[in-house]
Write a protein that binds this DNA or RNA. Structure first.
Length: 940
RNA sequence: GGGCGCGUAGCUCAGUUGGUUAGAGCGCUACCUUGACACGGUAGAGGUCUCGUGUUCGAGUCACGACGCGCCCACCA
């Protein structure tokens, strides 16, 4: 095999594995290394990866995200930007803890059994494995990240950023500790933020329970979905203006089962129309009741423990699970005649986002971050930044959703009763005093970072007996700092100065509030810069679609429809999978990933491969024959990038393709500017397959073919020019395709053009409107139409495609005839004709099959034709013409249309009408002619 | 209870500010193993753009309403 030969089979796996490794080794995506090979001549372009959770491996959502990011990164890098895509992973507190707990459970262990230290060791081990797996996947994906800057949300520098941020917020009073009712997961045994609770509709029951009035025979009926919490009731509430209950307010009912007297009170919160208009008030187990309780000074009686079981306050029910207790209590009420009725009831139940256990509102002491402190609001600047357009949100409806949420944001519960995460840097004293770490320094002990400066004594009483708060921070606390913690904040580093604010953030809608909102708030809060536009974490936020299964269902483990990206990569190749994701990624539309589409883009990759192979085979022969010198391509490359290269003696078809490439280049960059990945990919697909391969390559085949003995020396010059154009155009296309299909294009580029340098650092063709050639493109359209018309006649006549037959073209326009004359050779070849007759006069229908078009007629003289089929086709065409002409005539007859529509539109329609009229007359005449012949039984 | 998105060919979807003849891929039909590629070539069939009303000279595109599907937010027991 010689140097440029390309293997027959396209084997994506081998190519992709090779380049994945090579790119890591060559460190091309480290901006400093890239700059040595090609100094950037544009600005900085940076993006911090949405750090994948170290909960396992990457899923299709990641693959879509990384594909989109990588396309933009590679495109901008080729455009000459100094590009940094910073990689990393997230410790993902609760999510990772749940995964490791499940592992433990398989060994029959709980984290409590092995203890905090051992548990943390286990999670770190898991983190290492998962992190490696994720890195390996990203490498396989071709993600052009700078591995030298890889970060983890719990490594020492990031820990330091967390401490710094926490301590500053704490000192400013924006972080406080308080006893409130919060969402509690009885399985994870931790508090959750509102965002970590998902609501699901459930079929449930509404219980109507009689609460007897103390010392009276009457009772009040309350409706509840949670009878088990009645043990913690401390009041019954009605609406103050509810006439049914007005006289009862201030009286006392005896709480059944526990026989405790509780008051009936009035509160405007109560909805008179729901249930009976009277509610039980359980401040310790319901968020609304908690508020009512605080308004009326009620006791808060907790009857459930941390695992959702009844506690000692529940008397005889102690130890029962909340659902068991519910059944028992309902039974007992029934037995006492206190259950009036039950009704089926559909309502939303809050579930733990991670483990789907129904959450429990629970009173506990937690740490909170103030979002809207009147004197020092985190939210207000973040609202302004988006509203005033400092941060551009795409698609823009997400900007509105963001603002809606931000405008009614409330305090963020940041403490978690977990073992995996950043430990809260505050120490407790027996006196109740709270003392934070002295500063944000971090030390690494046994590979695990921790605060290096614990306080020596209590700030309140001076005692030295201090213990660190056992809680850890919500994982999103560290994520919120990601766009600057990754660059070394709080130090004033060179990276921070150069790459912050990042140019772009791309992530899914699901973390708009969790993450994007909090990054914006923390960036604006912490970055020590004057102007808000320098403090924002990113200038543009692009929200991508969701990847769904072929039925449009969300991929989830429980549905069992999760697709592993690696499986797709194995089956279809990374390039084809990336291309599929790109071409299906229309903004705002979810992606229903289907094998059909994957197959078709694998075919596309194969097509590119084979086009390259065709070129290589011919090149080899041309070199052997001496028609091409071995350094032909090197000399070509020395002339600069393909779009800037002047072609010597370009043939007509080269001029056409060059114009198409200029246009395509413009389109691709414009589409990518607007995140219209599907449009860019679609244009590339169509161009490469249906213009480059179907027309251009077919057209030039005879020209570039190795010289035969008969070939005149005069052809050699033409051939060299054709080769020059072919290499230039092919290279141009490879560059445009590279961001989408990096492996395949890199492989072909290195084989065909430059084995030493990566395509990833070559200039991206921008396209120049001065290079558009409308005249030639129009001409090509006519030639293509002529060839297609001739082929169509052949196909309709069922003539063997291999058979060479004569053909005829005629036109009343001399320019059209001249065009056909000039392109005679191509028409002969591509329509597979033995000869081509050109004439100005009309062509007869007899003795052949005639095809009319507005600007020319085509005919295959042939003794056999299927008159009936021709007649059928013509009738249909005539019908369509009549319909269109009717519509046009009506249009043009309308005075208002002529007066109000732009001239351009009116003239266009007139033009079209006259063309249609010509065509209509031709078709009508031909049809009646054929019908006559058919009816008279004349031979075909 | 609010808010958002979607409904275009058998299937999956494009269609940027309203303007000529509504596109693609897959699938389907016919012919073709022609020295890049059958993961291919050539040609073809297939659509009252969910329905209704309106704005407009002109609506797949804008407005309102209906129907169907999906999603998000919300403290109503």
């Amino acid at each position: 095999m010689t140097e440029h030969e390309i293997p027959k089979a396209y084997d994506p796996s081998a190519i992709e594995r090779h380049w994945a490794r090579a790119w890591v080794r060559e460190r091309l995506f480290t901006p400093e290394v890239a700059a040595q090979q090609r100094p950037p001549d544009k600005g900085t372009y940076s993006l911090c990866i949405p750090p994948p959770n170290v909960t396992g491996s990457l899923h299709m959502g990641h693959m879509l995200e990384h594909t989109q990011i990588d396309i933009l990164m590679r495109w901008r890098r080729m455009q000459g930007y100094r590009v940094l895509w910073l990689p990393g992973t997230d410790h993902a507190g609760i999510a990772t803890q749940v995964v490791v707990e499940r592992q433990l459970a398989q060994e029959g262990l709980t984290r409590q059994q092995i203890g905090r230290e051992e548990f943390e060791r286990r999670v770190w081990k898991w983190k290492a494995e998962s992190g490696d797996r994720i890195k390996e996947q990203m490498v396989r994906l071709g993600a052009s990240v700078d591995w030298s800057r890889e970060c983890f949300t719990m490594d020492a520098p990031r820990y330091r950023a967390v401490l710094e941020a926490f301590l500053r917020l704490y000192r400013e009073g924006l972080i406080y500790r308080g006893r409130y009712i919060v969402h509690w997961c009885p399985r994870c045994q931790t508090a959750l933020s509102d965002l970590e609770v998902v609501h699901r509709e459930r079929e449930d029951k509404l219980y109507f329970i009689k609460y007897p009035l103390a010392g009276a025979p009457e009772h009040v009926v309350v409706a509840t979905t949670r009878p088990e919490t009645m043990l913690g009731d401390t009041a019954v509430a009605v609406h103050p203006e509810d006439d049914r209950y007005r006289m009862l307010v201030g009286r006392v009912v005896r709480l059944p089962l526990v026989n405790r007297d509780i008051p009936i009170l009035a509160d405007e919160f109560v909805d008179r129309d729901f249930g009976t208009g009277a509610i039980k008030v359980t401040p310790a187990h319901d968020a609304d009741d908690f508020e009512i309780g605080r308004r009326h000074g009620l006791a808060e009686i907790t009857v459930l423990d941390e695992q959702g079981r009844m506690n000692e306050q529940a008397g005889g029910y102690k130890g029962l699970d909340r659902y068991e207790a519910r059944l028992r209590i309902v039974d007992d009420l029934k037995a006492q005649g206190l259950l009036q009725k039950t009704e089926p009831y559909r309502h939303g139940v809050g579930l733990c986002d991670r483990c789907k256990t129904p959450v429990e509102p629970r009173i506990s002491v937690q740490w909170f971050c103030k979002m809207n402190d009147p004197a020092n609001s985190l939210a207000a600047p973040a609202i302004r930044a988006v509203r005033e357009g400092l941060i551009k949100v795409v698609p823009e409806q997400y900007g509105r959703i963001y603002l809606d949420w931000m405008e009614r944001i409330y305090d963020w519960c940041i403490s978690r009763q977990l073992w995996w995460g950043h430990r809260i840097p505050v120490w407790h004293c027996a006196c109740g005093g709270l003392t934070p770490a002295k500063d944000s320094r971090v030390e690494v002990v046994e590979g695990r970072p921790q605060a290096a400066s614990p306080p020596e004594k209590c700030e309140k009483c001076g005692s030295a007996a201090l213990t660190q708060d056992p809680d850890v921070l919500d994982t999103w606390f560290s994520s919120a700092l990601w766009p600057f913690s990754t660059f070394g904040w709080p130090d004033d580093t060179a990276d921070l100065r150069e790459f912050y604010p990042t140019t772009l953030m791309i992530n899914g809608f699901d973390i708009l509030f969790f993450w994007d909102a909090r990054m914006i708030m923390s960036g604006l809060k912490f970055m020590p810069r004057e102007r808000a536009e320098e403090r924002i974490p990113f200038r543009t936020l692009y929200i991508h679609a969701l990847v769904r299964d072929p039925e449009g269902q969300k991929m989830s483990k429980t549905r069992g429809n999760v697709v592993d990206p690696l499986e797709l990569i194995e089956e279809y190749g990374t390039d084809a999978t990336r291309f599929t994701l790109a071409i299906m990624a229309a903004p705002g539309t979810d992606i229903a990933l289907s094998p059909d589409r994957l197959r078709s883009y694998r075919a596309f990759a194969n097509k590119i491969w084979n086009a390259a192979r065709f070129i290589a085979l011919n090149r080899q022969r041309a070199e052997q024959s001496g028609a091409l010198s071995a350094d032909f391509v090197t000399a070509l490359l020395a002339q600069g990038p393909p779009d800037a290269r002047g072609l010597t003696a370009p043939a007509w078809v080269d001029a056409w393709l060059s114009s198409r490439l200029h246009r395509l280049s413009r389109l691709v960059s414009q589409a990518l500017e607007d995140f219209r990945f599907h449009e860019a990919a679609h244009e590339l697909y169509h161009f490469f397959w249906h213009e480059f391969c179907d027309w251009y390559l077919e057209w030039i085949k005879p020209v570039i073919a190795p010289p035969s003995d008969a070939k005149a020396a005069a052809d050699a010059e033409e051939q060299r020019a054709a080769w020059q154009a072919l290499f230039t155009h092919f290279e141009w296309a490879l560059r445009l395709l590279h961001p989408f299909m990096p492996f395949l294009t890199e492989e072909l580029w290195r084989r065909q053009f430059d084995a030493e340098h990566s395509l990833a650092l070559q200039p991206f063709p921008q396209g120049d409107p001065a290079g558009f050639n409308d005249a030639i493109e129009k001409e090509m359209e006519l030639v293509q139409e002529a060839i297609t018309a001739l082929r169509e006649i052949r196909a309709g006549m069922k003539i063997d495609p291999r058979k060479h037959i004569p053909g005829e073209l005629s036109s009343t326009e001399p320019v059209v005839l001249e065009l056909f004359r000039a392109r005679r050779q191509a028409i002969l070849r591509l329509a597979n004709l033995s000869q081509l007759d050109l004439s100005a006069g009309p062509l007869a229908a007899e003795g052949g099959v005639l095809r009319h078009t507005p600007r020319f007629d085509a005919r295959i003289p042939y003794s056999q034709s299927d008159l009936a089929a021709e007649i059928k086709r013509l009738r249909k065409e005539k019908e369509k013409l009549e319909k269109d002409l009717g519509a046009m005539r009506a249009r043009l007859a309308d005075e208002e249309f002529r007066r109000k529509a732009p001239d351009e539109v009116v003239r266009g329609m007139e033009q079209r009408q006259s063309e249609y009229n010509v065509q209509y007359e031709k078709v009508t005449r031909l049809l009646s002619d054929l019908e006559n012949r058919y009816n008279s039984g004349a031979p075909a």
